[in-house]
């Protein structure tokens, strides 16, 4: 019975192209994000803070920036690796880096709040929503690319992969927003920048997982 199934599988065998290396996929994803950033700046989007800006020497600002960068790298790596059999160790490492990133970003906020950083505005709801929406907009394409690769490879749990892809993609967007936003308010930086990936996970995981499941069924 099983031997007969093996013969059927061999009979139906079609040549396939192996998936690209994970690091190639990751590099492609970050390159696509870089293109989006350039297009955003060219079309009048906010530019990064000038090099002489005091924020670049602020430990709280840098900790939040590093933390969000780690979340972007870790969650994206975990999403990609979780869809490839035999790469569970890479996925686990990605999850650890993501957790570390969140912890670092929250430490940045704690440092900022404790040091009583001067308030330069940005604590109103409009500013917070504006920055969070910008992080979503900039990060949606990398998140969708990540999700598409997972479906093309061998995705197992759509909701987990969708959550990781969203966290990674929107963290990339939040990274750009954090580097360009002029607000020095720790509260603004926490809610609109650091927590933007978490908000995306909460709000968008279910629809993205549904979309991915549909892609997988069609594929």
């Amino acid at each position: 019975m099983t031997e007969e199934r093996i013969r059927e599988l061999a009979r139906d065998l079609a040549p396939v192209t192996p998936i690209p290396r994970l690091r190639t996929v990751g590099a492609g994803l970050f390159a696509s994000f870089a293109l989006i950033l350039v297009a955003d700046w060219v079309s009048g989007g906010a530019e990064p803070r000038p090099l002489g800006d005091a924020a670049w020497s602020s430990p709280s600002f840098l900790a939040a920036l590093g933390g969000v960068a780690l979340v972007a790298f870790g969650a994206t790596s975990a999403a990609l690796a979780s869809a490839v059999p035999g790469r569970a160790a890479t996925a686990r490492s990605g999850l650890r880096v993501t957790a570390l990133g969140f912890a670092l970003a929250l430490t940045g906020w704690t440092l900022g709040a404790a040091s009583g950083a001067p308030d330069h505005g940005g604590e109103d709801l409009n500013s917070i929503l504006g920055c969070a929406a910008r992080a979503f907009t900039l990060g949606v394409v990398p998140a969708l690319l990540c999700a598409a690769f997972a479906v093309y490879a061998a995705m197992r749990r759509a909701s987990l992969t969708a959550a990781l892809a969203l966290a990674g993609g929107v963290a990339l967007g939040a990274l750009a927003v954090h580097a360009s936003c002029r607000s020095n308010s720790p509260l603004h930086q926490l809610v609109a920048h650091t927590l933007a990936p978490a908000a995306a996970v909460v709000l968008l995981t279910a629809p993205l997982a549904l979309l991915m499941s549909r892609w997988a069924r069609r594929g």
């Binding site: 099983t2 599988l9 396939v16 192209t17 192996p18 998936i19 490839v84 059999p85 035999g86 061998a154």
Partner: peptide, 26 residues
């Protein structure tokens, strides 16, 4: 049989430079 079918569907996810047994084991 599920293992064989899963392997057939996911055969494009194997990269020649990676250990085959780890891929199959997963």
């Amino acid at each position: 049989q599920n293992v064989l079918i899963s392997m057939h569907r996911a055969r494009h996810t194997y990269r020649p430079e990676r250990p085959f047994t780890a891929w199959f084991h997963a």
